[in-house]
């Protein structure tokens, strides 16, 4: 067991973790932040994407112990009270989700894309979403949502 402390969605957390515990399992099972999903066991689906120290990372591909000292934002930490984050807002407006299982990861990845590039082209978005799978939407409305979010963020 290793003792770790980190900040998640603005809250300070200290806990003991087994060496082999994945960060995503800590977030879901212990902290009960179940908006971060697990869609695969080979780090390919991106359902588990979170923001860690400013970068978008797949939390299934990290050990919990590696998060010691980190600052983390998950999907639950994106909205400001009742006000959705522009990316969340855009996904809703553009029908960028169907079942919603990939959505937390897609939204986090999109936040990352827009952070790096406030005016992404379709190509930029497609590239930026390379690590995220969606089985429902065919991605067209997700790409639309990211563009719409870019507009909302400028306004």
């Amino acid at each position: 067991m290793t003792k770790i402390s980190f900040t998640i969605n603005g809250k300070q957390v200290s806990t003991d973790v087994e060496g082999r515990t994945l960060l995503v399992d800590l977030i879901r099972d212990e902290l009960r932040l179940t908006g971060t999903h697990v869609g695969c066991d080979t780090s390919q689906c991106g359902c588990c994407t979170i923001e860690l120290n400013g970068d978008m990372v797949k939390s299934c591909a990290m050990l919990a112990a590696q998060a010691d000292g980190a600052t983390i934002t998950t999907i639950e930490g994106l909205a400001k009270g009742d006000v959705l984050h522009p990316v969340q807002q855009a996904f809703t407006e553009c029908h960028g989700l169907q079942c919603g299982f990939c959505t937390p990861g897609m939204i986090m990845a999109s936040v990352g894309i827009l952070k790096a590039n406030p005016n992404p082209s379709d190509d930029d978005i497609v590239k930026g979403l390379e690590g995220n799978l969606c089985r429902c939407t065919g991605y067209v409305n997700i790409i639309k949502s990211v563009k719409r979010a870019a507009e909302l963020m400028k306004a």
Binding site: E76, L84, G100
Partner: peptide, 9 residues
């Protein structure tokens, strides 16, 4: 959508 985009699904 609201519950699904906020992680509350």
């Amino acid at each position: 959508d609201r519950r699904l985009v906020t992680g509350a699904g």
